[in-house]
């Protein structure tokens, strides 16, 4: 499995599944470096090629370090102030099952109530 799929249109975020737990994680800014968060609102948005390359490099190194699987960039729109995937499939990954609003990210699972990184 390739660590990073073909780059989508920008702006984009990087998402993956945590290797141990399987839940969806997003690359976010942690000072000068990058770290994973469970909260889609905190995903770092890459607006240009430099930003996208940085996310791709992070995907490759984190995959190699056995921390995540299935890492890839997802194109988003940001008009609401937070990144929302343009495609409905990827939006599902930021929410959870639509028939069970009590489960997944839409129910706040793994997301700190204060909005701080979990």
């Amino acid at each position: 499995m390739a660590a990073v799929a073909k780059r989508p249109a920008l702006p984009a975020i990087l998402l993956a599944n945590d290797l141990l737990d399987g839940d969806v994680v997003f690359a976010s800014a942690a000072g000068e470096t990058l770290a994973w968060t469970r909260d889609p609102a905190l995903a770092l948005v890459a607006d240009d090629d430099t930003g996208a390359e940085r996310l791709e490099a992070f995907a490759v190194s984190e995959f190699a370090a056995q921390r995540v699987v299935d890492a890839y960039l997802v194109d988003v729109e940001t008009s609401t102030g937070r990144p929302v995937p343009r495609h409905y499939r990827e939006r599902m990954k930021t929410l959870g099952p639509s028939n069970r609003r009590d489960l997944g990210k839409q129910a706040g699972e793994g997301i700190a109530p204060s909005g701080q990184r979990a």
């Binding site: 499995m1 737990d21 969806v24 699987v69 299935d70 499939r89 959870g96 099952p97 997944g104």
Partner: peptide, 21 residues
């Protein structure tokens, strides 16, 4: 590696889905 592990987990019914395994 993931490439080595994936067929092993699949042989034991473990898939990776959208939100979780």
């Amino acid at each position: 590696t993931e490439d080595e592990f994936k067929p092993l987990r699949l042989k034991n019914g473990v898939y990776l889905q959208l939100h979780a395994y």
